[in-house]
Design a protein around this nucleic acid. Structure first.
Ligand code: MN
Ligand code: MN
Ligand code: ZN
Ligand code: ZN
Lengths: 143, 143
DNA sequence: GATGAAAATTAGACAGAGTCCAATTCCTAC
DNA sequence: GTAGGAATTGGACTCTGTCTAATTTTCATC
């Protein structure tokens, strides 16, 4: 499925293919997301990118993640009311969200069949569908 | 479907049935949500409850909405990264979210059929499933 | 009706995510 | 190497939501 290594060179090409000028900061942010194939918050991206030596500002992290989203290089996952997650997996897929741990897991969409959705109201076009299964550890009476 | 009027008296009974002590503030907050049958943010609830004369603090609005959620009187809808919506409709249903206007519309779940979802990982139990169709006005190249 | 304890409410300080802006730095084309 | 547009930066700012200690309300018991 993932044919190529996430080297800086390959990532720069990917950025160019998405119409994004591949700067040093942008490549590092892309590397953080793609090499891990994980759902990361802006804060987590910031920490990863600056762990060796500080080199990318908060403003740039937010600017870049929004740019990536606009250019459809990553998608946003809105499940935690306190922060957005960024997902480098653009294949159609759904999520399991553990309310206790905050852990976010992918569900492959190819096996899932959804039918009976109504017509959309006029004048709008669907941009995507999010499916989130909220789960809790067994026998947990809280929150 | 909604057999009874949302009078303060009936709402007080509903609160009691959910194990919630029906105080003046809690009844007003319930009334804001149920009489409108709308998806409201904490801020909107606050504005409605205080529009005649200020009588409910921000802390109480947040406390009460969280209490209602715990007691399963309302549900949270997480679609806007900047705020949570509270939904008095506890019937299984899904949502259409207009990314441009922020408008949130219900989709009746009874006609929707979802199959092929994988087994949940062990040790967790599903608390619910959220389905959100993100839409945009036709021919809108932005955001 | 007074008394006291538990429950609820409150103002305002606080925290964290995300945005904005003006100043600086970086790239690229000449 | 110069000019100009693009990108980055620190830090102030906004907004949603939480926390806390003080006050008010509720309610059972005398
Ligand atoms: Mn570096
Ligand atoms: Mn009133
Ligand atoms: Zn994912
Ligand atoms: Zn709804």
């Amino acid at each position: 499925m993932n044919k190529l290594q996430y080297t800086r060179e390959n990532l720069a090409d990917t950025l160019r293919r998405h119409g994004i000028n591949p700067t040093h900061q942008r490549i590092e942010i892309a590397h953080a997301l793609f090499s891990r194939q994980a759902h990361l918050s802006a804060d987590q991206v910031m920490a990863i990118v600056n762990e060796k030596h500080s080199e990318t500002s908060k403003a740039t992290v937010y600017n870049t993640l929004n740019l990536f989203r606009q250019k459809k290089l990553v998608r946003e996952v809105i499940v935690d009311p306190s922060k957005v997650f960024y997902d480098p997996n653009m294949e159609p897929h759904y999520h399991i969200y553990n309310l206790e741990s905050g852990e976010l897991t992918d569900i492959d969409a190819s096996s899932v069949r959804i039918s009976g959705l109504p017509q959309l109201p006029g004048g709008v076009v669907a941009e995507g569908m999010d499916v989130v299964i909220r789960v809790r550890p067994e026998s947990d009476n809280n929150s």
